[in-house]
Design a protein around this nucleic acid. Structure first.
Lengths: 354, 354
DNA sequence: CTCGCATTATCATTTCTTTTAATAGTCCAG
DNA sequence: CTGGACTATTAAAAGAAATGATAATGCGAG
């Protein structure tokens, strides 16, 4: 019997819908219906109770589903391992990233990946943060690239980068000439903020409050691009992850100023994936590439590194407690790039934190 | 990809031959060749090195083979369990039996099985003992019914019956009138024996030697049927498993006389199967049926049970050491039928003896 | 209860895959 | 080097799966 049918059945069972399952498998609804029928015919047993909306699995269907899911997983693993033996890195790598991971850096990584592993097929989608989680959960993406990663019982997060936040101002701004400023310099300034539902907004608010700095919030956007445009338009200034403004700094449309007294002012990025899913070789290779020091860096960067001994560290809130780094000194082996981004190195598979 | 291809590949890999594998799967050789090609194409890796005779698996092929074998096994188990939930006992049950298990009894059991589980398909082949082992080893039979079972690292044996050996004589023989005789009564008699390569021959020889009884061996056969014909022809007498002469006793062409002083004179029968193979529900049901007290008995039998307190026990040689029963008293729960056959009850799966 | 919406089943048709039989090619032993 | 056993290749036929349209069904709102 076609293993395909089993895949379709599993998707239908998981999504509790023939149409959804069919769509997920890129087949017609008719096909999904017939595929499940074939399986039922073969087993001589009803797997799905269609008299309920949404459909329900029969006890037999439940057992079949659980068993088959494991078998499919194993089969994929075997296929992947066989290919690995022959040094073939193949198969799909589906990555969902938030917009602000930095298009430039990602494009570079994608390009390198495609060169290194021409037999693999990489798809990279830029989505809203919630959608990234959803795609990973729904198994529509193998990896998700998110900020302030929130691991849970279903999702595991791998530390990736720790991006320092810098003060971004228009070139003509009075602070534009400074090498570094204190947070207090922001007091009373017109500020372009993130919208309140975003974790980065809450983090920045916390830091400002702690420093007893009050800014005048004049605009709110849910994405970095708009914030940058607003700064360029002279509406105000903002704290943004340094790598995300590389292009504007290079072209001189914006100026970034380091913040000297807020080493906790960082945006951690994480690579998330489903916890109980065996990653394919191709996916693991992509993670390796993301974690290699040469990735994720701004191509050309005026040398203005953060002061030594003050490592970027992120005193995270409840939602992102995992990424707390030692306050003094980098994580062992961590790489600091020219723009201050901390690349968290590949972790030995030893202790899995929950 | 068709699971069928994987099955074919596994059979080809196991038998180290395309043609043999194809035959085992009931497909053409061409088909097997193409099936493996398809898999190789999909994986982009060579699985089989055809430049050697007999063919060899590549490292990738070896890994794929091992992985797939396990997956197929799991898949079959899942399918079986799903069917079991729905109270469906289906699938093939392939049994290989030695000729002398008793056609009558087996026919009865087969009939009952087919009535109880019409959706299962039972095939019963009568073969030479060595072939029975071979078929089980080659996975061409799910179960084997053999005498003096020899479990090993590949084959597991389930105790089934302990058949008492009785003295079989022609009706006109001087011992025909006795209810029971001592082994010594055989001294000097013309004896029809089994051929020397058979375990039962060696067992009987041991017992005769121990009783210091010398018989005159006038004929040797490798099967019971011929021995019976020879006895009918007046060539001599023989010690035979009682159930195997039921028909001749009923019709009066032969007479069976119990042997009073040789409680170890028994032929144990066992159900063998591959050790590491998960048995399907249908196969387990067949075993249950074999072990149920009503099975394996001679349909109508003159009541002449063996003396109470003297249980048939088999002091086995090295080859059949497993079946050693307590010298006094039956195995717990064992059933003694009218003809003295001891039906060994279903054993709780607790300690696996090697 | 009934209507409308969303979902699933059924069907005929097209398209694709699998199967087969015949044939050509390859490897090994003598 | 040759014969025999084995495997690959091919084209045609048989078979299975995918599709789109349509019918049937269940669910919830009014």
């Amino acid at each position: 019997m076609h293993l395909r049918f089993v895949e379709i059945f599993c998707d239908v069972a998981q999504r509790r819908s023939f149409s959804k399952g069919a769509e997920a498998q890129n087949v017609s609804q008719s096909n999904a219906s017939q595929a499940v029928s074939k399986l039922e015919e073969r087993l001589g047993t009803l797997l799905i109770d269609r008299s309920k909306r949404p459909l329900e699995l029969t006890p037999a269907g439940q057992m079949y589903f659980e068993g088959c899911r494991e078998i499919l997983e194993r089969f994929r693993t075997i296929e992947d391992r066989v290919q690995a033996i022959a040094d073939r890195v193949v198969g799909p790598v589906r990555v969902a990233a938030i917009y602000s991971v930095g298009l430039m850096q990602m494009e570079q990584t994608v390009h390198r990946f495609e060169q290194l592993y021409p037999d693999a097929s990489l798809r990279l989608d830029y989505l809203h943060p919630d959608q990234v989680y959803q795609q990973v959960l729904d198994d529509k993406a193998d990896l998700g690239l998110v900020s302030y990663p929130r691991p849970n019982s279903e999702i595991l997060s791998i530390d990736w980068q720790v991006q320092p936040l810098v003060l971004v101002v228009p070139p003509q701004h009075r602070l534009a000439g400074q090498h570094a400023v204190s947070l207090s310099a922001l007091d009373g300034e017109n500020y372009i903020g993130f919208t309140r539902e975003l974790t980065i907004r809450r983090e920045i608010d916390r830091q400002l409050k702690r420093a007893r700095v009050a800014v005048q919030i004049v605009r709110e956007f849910d994405n970095i691009e708009n914030i940058k445009r607003a700064i360029e338009a002279g509406s105000g200034l903002a704290l943004l992850p340094k790598p995300t403004v590389w292009q504007e700094i290079s072209s001189g449309t914006l100026v970034a100023v380091d913040v000297s007294d807020a080493s906790d002012l960082v945006r951690p990025l994480g690579i998330i994936h489903k916890r109980h899913k065996q990653l394919t070789t191709a996916v693991r290779k992509f993670i390796e590439l993301l974690q290699s020091p040469s990735a994720g860096l701004a191509p050309v960067e005026p040398v203005r590194s953060i002061s030594a001994g003050k490592s970027p560290a992120h005193a995270a809130g409840a939602a992102s407690a995992r990424l707390t780094l030692p306050q003094n000194g980098h994580a062992p082996g961590a790489t600091v790039s020219d723009d201050g981004t901390l690349i968290v190195p590949r972790r030995k598979r030893k202790s899995r934190r929950t």
